[in-house]
């Protein structure tokens, strides 16, 4: 450290110093870092167990210096449910993509939320199946082209994209539901705040916490990282608005 300088930014110790396999510009890396910053700041490395899904983040355990389990496609919510029930004083999170959480795993997601399982969902919604090469997801936007909707998503045949944060906020078991993004430094800071709040609520045992990240996929969307940010702003946020959909602790405090 040079004299007269101070550290304003560093990698948290809980994030392993490894080259990530994620594509340039992908939010996964950002979210991984935010998450591990929170684990470090809260001093809960010894008490945290993560569950990663089938999808691009299947290797999340390669980067996070915490105990982790890799779940079958769509089943992270069931796996996380059991971990949290067996080890109720631990901080448990599932880290899932949209195909995982909102297509093949919809039942597990809804029922874990409805039971009020006291773990945190981290839902990376990039509107596409990234790992398998850019197929249509339940969250693909109307008219959006993917390898399995080459003429654009036809909502007459396929239905509208699922709004998961809004859906789960209707369930009594959910204590906190927010949609965040990482397209700007300001939004990234808000995302971290939301994640931290979710972990704090989990620590208090108030119910399920659900953080949806309106994320990007430059490779799957066939665009540059910068263009992916424009797509987010112009197409994604209008349909998937950022914001808090449920905040039981805040409501309680108001009362």
């Amino acid at each position: 450290m040079k004299e007269g300088y101070e550290v304003v930014y560093k990698r948290p110790k809980t994030l392993l110093d490894k080259r990530m396999h994620y594509c340039p510009g992908c939010f996964h890396a950002t979210i991984h870092k935010l998450l591990m910053e929170i684990v470090e700041e809260m001093g809960i490395q010894e008490k945290t167990v993560g569950v990663c899904p089938v999808g691009c983040s299947v290797f999340a355990y390669d980067y996070m210096d915490i105990d982790m389990q890799e779940a079958a496609h769509g089943r992270a919510a069931a796996v996380a449910t059991a971990i949290k029930r067996m080890l109720p004083d631990r901080y448990v999170f599932s880290y899932q993509g949209d195909g995982d959480l909102a297509a093949i795993g919809t039942a597990e997601t809804i029922h874990a939320c409805n039971r009020g399982e006291k773990f945190t969902f981290i839902f990376i919604n990039n509107g596409i199946y990234g790992m398998t090469g850019g197929q249509m997801a339940p969250t693909t936007l109307e008219g959006q082209k993917t390898t399995t909707s080459p003429y654009g998503r036809n909502v007459q045949k396929l239905g509208m994209p699922l709004k998961m944060a809004e859906m789960v906020s209707q369930l009594a078991g959910v204590a906190y539901a927010e949609r965040v993004s990482c397209n700007t430094p300001a939004n990234t800071r808000k995302a971290k705040k939301a994640l931290k709040k979710a972990f704090e609520i989990q620590g208090k045992g108030l119910g399920t916490t659900f953080i949806e990240v309106a994320s990007n996929c430059p490779s799957g969307w066939k665009c540059t990282p910068v263009e992916s940010l424009d797509w987010l702003k112009n197409k994604v946020y209008p349909y998937f608005p950022l914001g808090v959909f449920k905040d039981v602790p805040a409501v309680k405090e108001e009362v």
Binding site: A78, T81, A107, E108
Partner: peptide, 11 residues
């Protein structure tokens, strides 16, 4: 049963 076997996995 799909959920229960995966709960078994997690636990």
């Amino acid at each position: 049963e799909v959920a229960s076997v995966n709960m078994v996995y997690g636990a």
